[in-house]
């Protein structure tokens, strides 16, 4: 999962759908723990700003 920090609005919607607990929002910075990611794309679907890409 790649995150475009210029687009991200640090809202945490992606965090709330990641059942693998692979995303964390640290104040205004989204962090993705690749080793936990199952590539389910749930985070991509809910992101309102298209800040996430495979």
């Amino acid at each position: 999962m790649r995150i475009n920090y210029e687009r991200c609005g640090y809202c945490g919607a992606c965090v709330g759908v990641c059942k693998s607990m692979a995303i964390e929002l640290i104040e205004n910075r989204v962090v993705i723990y690749e080793e936990r990611c199952k590539r389910c794309k749930a985070c991509i679907i809910v992101c309102p700003l298209k800040a996430l890409e495979e």
Partner: peptide, 21 residues
């Protein structure tokens, strides 16, 4: 809130289905 991580840390299921967000 929406992030729903804290209870998951204790084993409760609260992450949401993306088609219900």
């Amino acid at each position: 809130g929406m992030e729903s991580s804290v209870a998951e840390m204790a084993g409760l299921k609260c992450k949401k289905n993306p088609m219900e967000v």
